[in-house]
Design a protein around this nucleic acid. Structure first.
Lengths: 210, 210
DNA sequence: CTTCAAAGTTAGTGTCTCTTACATATGTTA
DNA sequence: TAACATATGTAAGAGACACTAACTTTGAAG
């Protein structure tokens, strides 16, 4: 009854792409069992390496989880950036699209989504993570200013962008926590997003279209 | 060099109030180190009992953490219920007060706040947790209906209450994640809450005051 | 007083994270 | 091309932890 299968013999001593594969294996495990019940050992088993291998690539378990979180932030950012490209400028539909992507990401990868915002202490020290979050928020801020017909972001734009973000952020958490089911809303996400966007942007003086 | 101090000799064999004290010790540890880096063993050390003792009161570690979460939800609920008592009915200030308590709780007990919404899978099976969350949301719904001058909650009230909840929920998470600092908003919480309350409730036809 | 259940303890088992020392591959430079 | 430095892997093990099994103490009920 040998307990380990993979690690002893591989075609090549070097794995070739272990770092990326460890991140991917961990991502799957996080999604399957949650961040608290995953073990680095198990990710090693999936990747087919010894349990000491990860520590050549990551400082510790948290460092690995942070890499998973960063991957999530990049996917989220890219999806949001892509969602607004085909839409005509200066319409509320652009905010709806951003919100739909944000919420959709949380639903597709709930555990990663939580991870992106959950490891607060270590996150604050991770420059890549902070920067990526800042970039994503920048998309929203730019949209708010653009809706107003301006290329420069004013203080009121910050406030409105933050309101939009808070709303979809909270909405995402409540949805993946299953509060929706309990609360029993006859729920149309797009309508909700449109409604909230209109309300948040209701104090905007829209400049005459170009 | 004996490593353990307390467990071997206590005045009484039975602790008397171990369950409550374990919850409190765990709450402190969660707040100090986060849910991933806390150990039941350490909580035992604080409470002065052996490491096997908790399993007479809790099924496993998650069960203990869930008890901590439930305690948090009770405190949050009670604080919210108390906050609106002294305020005159049917004014936006009541929503501001609710939001202030919600966000304030998240700031005072950020780790517990996360815990209340983070263990989704197990949470859904915990009737006490689900019920308490439902009760708290009920406070908001009742306020929305009352603001409208009605004692019965309609579908539009559900929607508005959910919007308010989503907003403060997201705001809370963003604040405790330190996004505020990065985003650098010259931030007045009360003004923000009043603004968002007014916007969310802007489609309410307020009945003539009694 | 006896009995019993509740609530502790001790002594483990198996798993986990992470370290240390060593082995193997890769690229650079003499 | 040989030698070396560096990157990346393994094996073995220390120390902590979650949880279990079997035993002990205590208080209460009959």
């Amino acid at each position: 009854m040998k307990k380990n299968a993979e690690p002893q013999r591989r075609a090549q001593y070097h794995h070739g792409d272990l770092k990326a594969q460890l991140i991917e294996a961990t991502r799957q495990l996080v999604e399957a069992k949650g961040p608290d019940h995953l073990s680095v050992s198990e990710a090693c088993r999936i990747a087919g390496v010894s349990t000491a291998a990860p520590y050549k690539h990551f400082k510790d378990k948290d460092d690995l989880l942070r890499a998973v979180a960063l991957g999530g932030m990049e996917r989220q950012h890219d999806q949001m950036a892509a969602a607004i490209v085909p839409l005509p400028p200066r319409c509320l539909e652009r905010f709806v699209a951003l919100g739909r992507v944000y919420v959709g990401f949380a639903q597709k990868e709930p555990a990663v989504f939580r991870l992106m915002f959950a490891l607060s202490d270590d996150h604050a020290d991770d420059d890549a993570l902070v920067k990526k979050g800042f970039d994503t928020f920048g998309i929203v801020k730019a949209e708010v200013a653009d809706y107003r017909g301006s290329a420069t972001i004013e203080e009121a734009d910050d406030r409105r962008a933050f309101q939009l973000w808070s709303f979809v952020h909270g909405l995402s958490f409540l949805m993946i926590d299953g509060k929706m089911a309990k609360v029993n809303l006859p729920f149309d996400l797009d309508a909700m997003l449109l409604d909230i966007s209109a309300k948040v942007m209701s104090d905007v003086k829209v400049a005459a279209p170009v």
